[in-house]
């Protein structure tokens, strides 16, 4: 700790309030201190609502084609215009939210469970567990990640489930390494040694002492990788993997609009692309904000 920090932190003036209340208050403080985090949280809530209620709020049928109304510019009737088959892009963008979010959440939840458990076990027990997890992570990291995802989906078959699996696999090293490093530094920490002295078994220490201290960091990681997972899934469907037309999905909609952009029909690709961007941006900002909340160094 620097001298100046030692000065300002005033270590001998204990503060009031504990636990959840303090955390909430700190969260409120962070949001008011950094309105961007508040904004991203609001955006996240909006995204979640659209994902749940999208099909019901969509003004048009997302699948109904109408060649007579093809390639119409954005108007009051078709907010985002229509595509080459005359489908309403606004409705398709709304409906697509659920699929994109589901892919991202499912893959992140999967990798959170697998990578988290493997990493914590590797960091705490060391030895062969560590070597196996390390070797698996290294092998995955030896590939350019998007390319590996392409190879996996190509091999396993062109389905949404396989996109989820591929996205989880390429994120595995990130989670495993983070959890491993955090578990490893805590393995010899004073409070873990103290827990051993007070008669806690290894598993108890792992669950009661180490896991709760790592979890917040993993949550931050989750939020940050959500954005990456969305990008990755959209990229795969952009090159024709996973989601197939006519299913509305942001990546594939951008791909459909790509051939029209050079001739000036920009709205087909731009609106799904913007939604994609907004969603990723939201998760990245949220991750940064969460890190501020979780980081005890910044907690006052």
């Amino acid at each position: 700790m620097s001298r100046a920090a030692a000065m300002t932190a005033a270590p001998d003036t204990p503060r009031n309030a504990t636990g959840l209340k303090a955390l909430l208050r700190h969260g409120a403080f962070v949001i008011s201190d950094n309105p961007v985090t508040g904004l991203s949280f609001a955006l996240f809530v909006a995204l979640a609502l659209i994902a749940i209620f999208g099909p019901w709020i969509a003004p048009h049928d997302a699948f109904a084609s109408n060649t007579a109304a093809a390639l119409q510019k954005p108007s009051l009737h078709h907010l985002f215009g229509t595509d080459q088959l005359g489908r309403d892009i606004f409705s398709r963008v709304l409906v697509a939210t659920r699929l994109d979010m589901t892919i991202a959440i499912a893959s992140v939840a999967l990798v959170f469970a697998l990578g988290g458990v493997a990493g914590i076990a590797a960091g705490y027990f060391g030895g062969w567990t560590d070597r196996v997890v390390g070797r698996v992570s290294d092998t995955i990291m030896a590939f350019p990640l998007f390319v590996l995802a392409m190879g996996i989906v190509a091999a396993l078959g062109n389905t949404v489930t396989n996109i989820v699996i591929a996205t989880a696999i390429i994120n595995f090293p990130l989670y495993a390494r983070l959890a491993r490093a955090e578990a490893n530094i805590r393995r010899e920490a004073g409070f873990v040694q103290a827990a051993r002295l007070t008669g806690n078994s290894d598993w108890r220490i792992l669950l009661m002492q180490i896991l709760p201290n790592i979890l917040p960091l993993m949550m931050v990681q989750m939020s940050l990788t959500m954005g990456y997972a969305i990008l990755n899934a959209a990229g795969l469907s952009f090159i024709g993997l996973g989601v197939r037309p006519p299913t509305p999905e942001w990546g594939i909609m951008v791909a459909e609009g790509a051939s029209f952009i050079a001739s000036g029909e920009w709205w087909i690709a731009v609106f799904p692309g913007l939604s994609l961007m907004l969603a990723v941006f939201c998760f990245n900002l949220l991750g940064d904000g969460l890190r501020d909340i979780v980081d005890p160094q910044r907690r006052t």
């Binding site: 990008l231 920009w266 692309g273």
Partner: peptide
């Protein structure tokens, strides 16, 4: 740094094509 990682690369490419070519 924040916006750059949020941009889908295929989408930026298309935007550039629209702006600088069309």
């Amino acid at each position: 740094a924040t916006a750059g990682v949020s941009l889908p690369v295929f989408f930026t490419g298309l935007l550039f094509v629209y702006a600088f070519y069309f």
